[in-house]
């Protein structure tokens, strides 16, 4: 464990908490892509199947449970409790355009052709594209609530911190997880234009609106 990974996990948790607070307090999931949240729940489900079989540490187990809970509660709030505020018309990204290539690639490019390893690989590839429906929705509506931009900032920051964690682990313990690193780079690249808008607009007190 290193400081980049801890900060990354905290940033990831913070993002999920910000989203839950936004939905709960505003009693609305306007501007939130339910499809992205479904994909995140799928990412955690397919990645944390070893929750009961492969004990790594208390921290690892607790965080996996918390992440799974946050993901499913968020999906429930969007499609259940506050479904009347769900903007399904603008949440129109075709999930099959993501799932088909990701499933195909996880069968082609993995470390070993076993069910748990293919599911782990699927979760890594899926996570790198899971935010696209959300970014697509913002580009379609042309704007995002400020609290939503904070959610996206910490969500993007988490994987950027993981990139630093992998550099650190490569130099200190010669650890190199190619599938996770390549996917993490792709994932972080998707946030770049958002990061630019966040830093140049939101941090200056303006509302995030796309030209």
């Amino acid at each position: 464990m290193n400081v980049f990974r801890i900060l990354g996990d905290v940033s990831h948790l913070l993002a999920m908490v910000i989203l839950l607070v936004k939905i709960w307090r505003s009693k609305s999931c306007a501007g939130i892509s339910g499809k992205s949240q479904i994909l995140f729940a799928l990412v955690f489900t397919s990645r944390y199947l070893d929750l009961l079989t492969n004990f790594i540490s208390i921290y690892n187990t607790v965080m996996k449970v918390v992440f799974l809970l946050c993901a499913y509660v968020t999906v429930y709030l969007i499609y259940g409790k506050f479904r009347k505020t769900f903007d399904s018309e603008n949440d129109s990204f075709r999930l099959e355009f993501l799932l088909v290539p990701v499933i195909g690639l996880s069968f082609l490019e993995n470390y070993s052709f076993t069910p748990t390893e293919i599911l782990w690989t699927f979760s890594i590839y899926l996570e790198s594209v899971a935010i696209l429906p959300q970014l697509f929705m913002i580009s379609k509506t042309g704007e995002a609530e400020t609290i939503t931009t904070h959610y996206l900032f910490f969500l993007g920051l988490y994987r950027a911190l993981y990139l630093a964690n992998w550099i650190w682990r490569y130099h200190t313990e010669n650890f190199y997880d190619q599938i996770a690193v390549v996917s993490g780079v792709v994932q972080t690249i998707f946030y770049c234009d958002f990061f630019y808008l966040y830093i140049t607009k939101v941090l200056k007190g303006k509302k995030l609106s796309l030209p």
Partner: peptide, 10 residues
């Protein structure tokens, strides 16, 4: 060498 498949990261 076979990859360490412990996947100790979240």
């Amino acid at each position: 060498e076979p990859k360490d498949l412990s996947h100790d990261e979240l």
